[in-house]
C-alpha cells in the first residue's frame, strides 16, 4: 500500500459519501457541503492514483489546483442561488416534487 493508493481509496469513499449526501439530504447548504466532499474525493483519486507507484506527477497536481479554484467558484455560485431562494421563499430546501 503506497501513500497514493491509500488516499485514492479514501477519495473513492469520499466521492461515494458525497453522492449519497447530495441525493439524501434536503437542506441546500448540506447539499453544497456534500458536493464539495464529492469534489475533494475526485481530486484525491486523480492525484493519488497517478502517484500510486510513489513518485510525484506534476500534471494531475496542476489540474487539481485548477479544480480547487473552480470548485470554490461553483460553491459561491450555488450559495448565491440558495440565498436568492431563501430571500424569495424563506426556506433553504427545494420544493418537493409531486412524484416523491
Amino acid at each position: 500500500m503506497t501513500t497514493g493508493l491509500i488516499f485514492a481509496c479514501a477519495g473513492a469513499i469520499l466521492f461515494t459519501m458525497g453522492v449519497a449526501g447530495v441525493m439524501l439530504l434536503d437542506h441546500l447548504l448540506r447539499r453544497i457541503l456534500a458536493f464539495n466532499l464529492m469534489g475533494s474525493g475526485v481530486f484525491l483519486v486523480l492525484v493519488g492514483l497517478a502517484q500510486r507507484a510513489g513518485n510525484p506527477d506534476p500534471v494531475p497536481q496542476a489540474m487539481v489546483i485548477t479544480g480547487i479554484v473552480v470548485a470554490v467558484a461553483a460553491t459561491a455560485l450555488a450559495l448565491a442561488l440558495a440565498r436568492r431562494l431563501f430571500t424569495l421563499s424563506g426556506g433553504y430546501t427545494l420544493p418537493e416534487t409531486p412524484d416523491d
Binding site: T3, G4, F7, A10, F43, L44, V47, G48, Q51, P56, Q61, A62, V64, I65, I68
Partner: peptide, 11 residues
Amino acid sequence: LAWARLSAPDI
C-alpha cells in the same frame, strides 16, 4: 495535510 503527504505542496 493529505496533499502534503502526497508530496503536492502547491495543492
